[in-house]
């Protein structure tokens, strides 16, 4: 699961996909997840980081993470290299 390399993510929460010309905005936790995905972290690491920092539960984070990934795929922001969900 990797964010496409040329997607521009700015600190303000503004995301730009130069391949399609589309722009997006994300909330702070969304931004953190994007950064972690970009750094190549897998789900286990991301979940741990989120739960270390925020008051939440494993099930909630897992459900929200999967939903977030679904949206990233729908928006074509994920590298499409035939790789299966990890």
């Amino acid at each position: 699961m990797k964010i496409k390399k040329n997607v521009a993510i700015s600190d303000s929460g503004f995301i730009f996909n130069p391949d399609t010309g589309e722009s997006f905005s994300a909330n702070p936790i969304g931004m953190e997840m994007l950064e972690m995905l970009r750094d190549g972290m897998d789900y286990e690491e991301i979940r741990k980081n989120i739960l270390d920092k925020y008051k939440s539960e494993k099930d909630t984070v897992e459900k929200d993470y999967n939903d977030f990934i679904t949206m990233l795929k729908q928006y074509n922001l994920i590298e499409n290299d035939g790789q299966k969900d990890d």
């Binding site: 722009s23 994300a26 936790i29 008051k55 909630t60």
Partner: peptide, 14 residues
């Protein structure tokens, strides 16, 4: 103290 959690959100700007 842990921060208040909120679900991640990404939204297309239209």
């Amino acid at each position: 103290e842990k921060l208040r959690y909120e679900r991640p959100l990404i939204r297309k700007l239209e």
